[in-house]
């Protein structure tokens, strides 16, 4: 009898939890729908000017005419540049972090330079990069790399240096050499640091690619946004921004899934 009473309370509690979850999701969906509906209605009534603010139905139309604007090609180019920049950033970042971890001397020498480079807004290097690398995809990838690399190096090096001292001492009692400490303790102990830095990196690489495309202005979503703005085709700008946020979300989720696979 008593047991049944408890389980009933438990059921009520669980139901409450579930209702709460559904309520949150419903409100979130309603906000999106309400926002789109309001935007559409206000534009239709002429209260806001759809020429400068665009309009959901026009965005959908632009979206449907994918081929007309070569939208897919541009999306593909942006994705490609981001993945290359992101991959290079992660690879070089880990490599440099390992070198700096290995050599105390080098890491002390590099420290002030890393601090300065880290606080420098890398976009300021844009014109220099374009002159040196040429106004093309190369410059855009270098831009993405410039933005993400230093942060990766700093974060992973920091993780490496903060590896549990007790584990290192334990390895030392077995007379482990530096390579063994690196491969058997330091790297496996920092898998989560690595995944976290990838999560930050994917966002930073996109910032690099889009700002690179702004400057180079040849192809990609960044180019479409700048172009759309210049010719007052706000439908194109809005569509590009929405696609960009979808691309960013998918890439971020990709890293999250990768993290779950690696960490079992």
């Amino acid at each position: 009898m008593d047991k049944k009473a408890i389980s009933k309370d438990r059921m009520i509690y669980l139901r409450k939890q579930k209702i709460n979850k559904i309520a949150i999701l419903t409100v979130q969906i309603l906000i999106v729908i309400g926002f789109i509906a309001l935007w559409e209605i206000l534009a239709n009534l002429g209260i806001i000017d759809s020429f400068i603010a665009s309009q959901p139905s026009r965005i959908v139309k632009t979206f449907m005419n994918l081929s007309e604007n070569d939208l897919l090609t541009h999306v593909g180019i942006t994705c490609f540049e981001t993945i290359i920049g992101f991959g290079l950033g992660a690879l070089l970042g880990v490599l440099i972090a390992i070198i700096l971890w290995w050599s105390n001397f080098l890491s002390k020498v590099a420290d002030p330079f890393l601090v300065v480079l880290n606080s420098l807004p890398k976009i300021a290097l844009g014109p220099v990069i374009i002159i040196w690398v040429g106004a093309g995809m190369g410059a855009i990838i270098v831009m993405a790399l410039a933005i993400s690399l230093i942060v990766t190096v700093l974060e992973i090096l920091n993780g490496f240096l903060n590896t549990d001292k007790e584990l290192l001492k334990m390895a030392k009692t077995f007379n482990a050499n530096k390579m063994q400490v690196l491969t058997k303790i330091v790297i496996p102990a920092n898998i989560s640091t690595f995944i976290n830095s990838l999560k930050v990196n994917i966002g930073l690489s996109l910032v690099g690619v889009i700002s690179g495309e702004f400057l180079v202005s040849k192809a990609g979503l960044g180019y479409l946004i700048v172009y759309g703005g210049q010719v007052f085709q706000l439908d194109l700008v809005m569509t590009s921004v929405i696609i960009l946020s979808i691309v960013a979300a998918i890439m971020y989720q990709g890293v999250v899934i990768l993290g779950k696979i690696v960490q079992k």
Partner: peptide, 27 residues
């Protein structure tokens, strides 16, 4: 000489078996 510290310092990403093999692996 075998040396045992205050903390067990087991490697969380390895199974018990692979943890026990750690010293042999290093040497």
């Amino acid at each position: 000489i075998g040396y045992m510290l205050q903390k067990d310092s087991l490697l969380e990403w390895r199974t018990i078996y692979d943890n026990v093999l750690f010293g042999l692996e290093i040497r």
